[in-house]
């Protein structure tokens, strides 16, 4: 079950998510799938990006849950503080 889920999530990342986030120099890697929880890592322009949470919650998580309803949660394991080239950098308004 978990292996099948993993394959389907990986396929979604390869075909829908990574081609899109590549536009900002970013990429997403599947770290693990456990108990219907998907663990991801963001890299490139996504790592440390000011908009990474929006991309994850309203984009990636939604897409995964819509396409694969048995996924309960999508968790970001990225060390965003170590990102050296974020696409957007947070600042004072």
């Amino acid at each position: 079950m978990s292996e099948d889920l993993r394959t389907r999530v990986q396929d979604l990342i390869d075909t829908m998510i990574n081609p899109a986030v590549a536009g900002h120099g970013g990429f997403v890697e599947l770290v693990d799938v456990q108990d219907n929880r998907v663990y991801l890592q963001m890299g490139g322009g996504c790592q440390g990006c000011g908009a990474a949470d929006v991309t994850l919650k309203s984009g990636i998580e939604r897409l995964i849950k819509e396409e694969i309803p048995e996924v309960a949660e999508v968790l970001d394991t990225t060390d965003h503080a170590s990102g050296t080239n974020p696409y957007y950098t947070a600042g004072k308004a």
Partner: peptide
């Protein structure tokens, strides 16, 4: 149910137009 709006397009806006 959250809809996020930003001043620049999200990379996934085309895939999630109801939420971005």
């Amino acid at each position: 149910d959250v809809v996020c709006a930003s001043e620049k397009p999200s990379t996934l806006e085309a895939q999630a137009p109801d939420h971005l």
